[in-house]
Design a protein around this nucleic acid. Sequence first.
RNA 1: GGCCCCGUCGUCUAGGUAGGUCCAGGACACAGGGUUUUCAACCCUGCAACACGGGUUCAAAUCCCGUCGGGGUCACCA
Length: 504
Amino acid sequence: MALTAVARHPNIYLTSSSFYTFGTPVTPSSTIKTRFPPSPTGTLHVGGARTALFSWLVARRAGGHFILRIEDTDQARNVPGGAEAIIRDLKWLGLDWDEGPYLQSQRLDIYAKHIQKLLDAGHAYYAFETAEELDVLRKQAQEAKQAFRYPRPDPLPTAADADRARSAGKPVVVRLKCPSQAVTVEDEVFGEVQVAADQMDDFVICKANGYPTYHLANVVDDALMGINFILRGQEFLGQTWRHIVLRQALGYPQPRYAHLPLILDMQGKKLSKRDADVDVHSFRRAGFLPEALVNFIVLLGWSPGDNREKFSLAQLREVFDVADIGKSNARFDLEKLRAFNTDACADAAPDRLLTAFKDYLSLNDTPIPADDDNLLAQVLEVCKGFRTFADIPAKVGVLFQADADFEYDTKAVKKVLRKNDAAGFAVLAQLREVLSKCDWQHEILEACINDYCRTKELSMGQVAQPIRVAVTGRTVSPQIIDTLMILGHDKTLARIDRCLDLPR
RNA sequence: GGCCCCGUCGUCUAGGUAGGUCCAGGACACAGGGUUUUCAACCCUGCAACACGGGUUCAAAUCCCGUCGGGGUCACCA
């Protein structure tokens, strides 16, 4: 398995035999240990990113450990490169981990042992129904307006029965015997949640192909890796009883749980993993700063309890508290994120901004040359006030195109140059002469143009706009002197000449 | 549909554990104005919420009950 990004982490190849032994949790329970266990079936979206962030924060705040584990037990749904992409995005956000990434696909022997142990202890049993047969039963339950519960056979099938079923070509799965008493989930966000006995049924822990289900693998790994504080989305709250019951059957201690309110889209629906708009990586490509995304995301479901809302990762490590997590779902408001990004860009140190901008350019096709740091710094400077990096090529990209390549916007030409008996063209023609004699330095250019304004009794607006349209084809660009400085003497004059040739 | 969770401005939220200091505060958005050489940024002002109905209490956004609304979950997916 080619995991280039993963391979930099020394623990990646840790498997059962090299580190963990069967049934022995490794970490002293006094240390807080959290984890983020994505499945590589899609990309990292803001919901997953927030879960990772909160888990990381809890561990870091407590001086504990944070683990990354890839849950790739669904052969059919694994996406090639999925794990690498998630790792890339987590790193971009500024998160790191003390162990892992572990790969569940490399730990199958561990799960098999646990399943066998459960079977031997009488906590689990074999079942042979096909998907179709189960569907029929579910439909019946639905029509009877009841929760579906797998009908536990009596007597339970034996290992011999399983062998017979297998040779008869039937699917053989293993189910856990659920308890007959209610289970209480002690959640640190939602409080105590009771699950009645008749709401639980004997769920599958081992698939017909021999792979463990999510519930089994997740619980076993959390226990063996010493995870004692689990943070995850609220969609898991109603299923947590399975994990509690599994741990009881296995004889493992219960961890602390904190379920997080969901992040919904602006329509009020749960964010979909297939919704590319909320991918962490698409925000990166779209020109957002990770610190802005982190700051925005942490406020979805968490608040410090006062009016503060600007936080760096380092500050969050100091103030984040599970007790301040709210219960109600939040909607993802892109406009607020954009506002946060605007502020983050304005506040970023110049070299940090330059690095991020170059990252943006490397991910996008723009006319801006990415190899000249001084030029890039200059561009960043004259575009101050931008909301995302994407605003920059939109604003100055035309300055880096060939002089004959850009179009003149008809409306701009009409409004700025042609109107009032081509007054703008007249100004432009005179300006051409002025500028041709100018030394191309900021102060000198400024003095030249100011001079011209004074002599002709024109406002800066009446002068700057014709130049702007002439050299960019549009009415929008950085301040006119800055625009000309980036363009340079020759290109400025060439473009003015081209403009002067336009039909009046 | 069964079960579970949630319900303060359009959005994110403070306040609710210890009811009065909240005719509800902040931020984003929006509207108007200002600055300006265009755009963006920036500055000022404004608009705007305790879902509804019953209780408890001298007093409820804060406590209780009901209704309604929203979301989640019911897989050999995670």
